[in-house]
């Protein structure tokens, strides 16, 4: 999944990778991709995780994991970092998801359980701020319930913000044409249509890495 997302990120894009599954995308970006990673705690051109003597308490990613800086990196404060998102300067963000609706609504911050402590971080800002939002998630819950749904039942993170959903069974494109299956892995479109309650319109052939910037 992470390799597929990485292949679909255009060269030179400014990208934010959310905490969790999306973090893995960084390992699949080609060294010469020119992709610039943004971390919302105030840095552009973030490098890989820091190890041993590289660890610096002043240099972490949004998950508070020690990271490194690449040549050409820059630092900025939080208001600037989020202005970068809301202002439409970030090309892509990749987020995890609990549920995505056919209309592109995203739920990824709160299970809605009464004793759960709500914690949103930067998810809502990223969801509505980045020019394109990719979600990475398993297509079904552990009990087999679809996570691509007609309407989200979990509290929302953002309305109509998701452009593409990468799952373990298929990649879906969301937009004016509804939910378009872009590619499948193991599971056929008919079976997908059977197991999902969202209408699937058409089948678009994937051309990884050929997205327009």
């Amino acid at each position: 999944m992470a390799a597929l997302v990485a292949a679909d990120i255009p060269r030179g894009a400014f990208v934010n990778l959310g905490i969790g599954l999306p973090t893995l995308v960084a390992d699949h970006l080609a060294a010469d991709s020119g992709v610039v990673l943004h971390t919302e705690n105030g840095m552009l051109n973030m490098g890989p995780a820091a190890h041993g003597e590289q660890i610096d308490p002043d240099l972490t990613n949004a998950g508070k994991v020690p990271v490194t800086e690449l040549p050409g990196a820059s630092y900025f404060h939080h208001a600037d970092s989020f202005a970068m998102m809301r202002g439409g300067h970030l090309d892509i963000c990749v987020l995890g998801g609990f549920q995505v609706s056919a209309a592109g609504d995203l739920a990824n911050w709160h299970t809605g359980e009464p004793d759960a402590i709500p914690a949103v971080g930067g998810a809502m800002d990223l969801a509505i701020g980045a020019r394109r939002v990719f979600v990475m998630m398993t297509l079904f819950t552990k009990t087999g319930e679809p996570k691509l749904v007609p309407r989200c039942t979990y509290p929302l993170t953002g309305l109509a913000c998701v452009d593409r959903v990468y799952t373990d069974h298929a990649v879906f494109e969301l937009g004016a044409r509804g939910v378009v299956v872009r590619e499948t892995f193991g599971m056929g479109v008919e079976e997908l249509a059977e197991r999902l309650e969202v209408p699937l319109s058409g089948f678009a052939s994937a051309e990884p890495g050929r997205d327009e910037a």
């Binding site: 919302e40 404060h77 939080h78 208001a79 970092s81 989020f82 202005a83 998102m85 809301r86 004793d115 402590i117 709500p118 914690a119 949103v120 971080g121 930067g122 998810a123 809502m124 800002d125 701020g129």
Partner: peptide
């Protein structure tokens, strides 16, 4: 924090991170 919150002994206002900064 978790224990105080669950015991109803602390108020919490959750604000999206960018909105908090702004």
């Amino acid at each position: 924090f978790d224990a105080l919150y669950r015991a109803g002994e602390i108020e919490l206002e959750v604000v999206p991170q960018g909105t908090l900064a702004e």
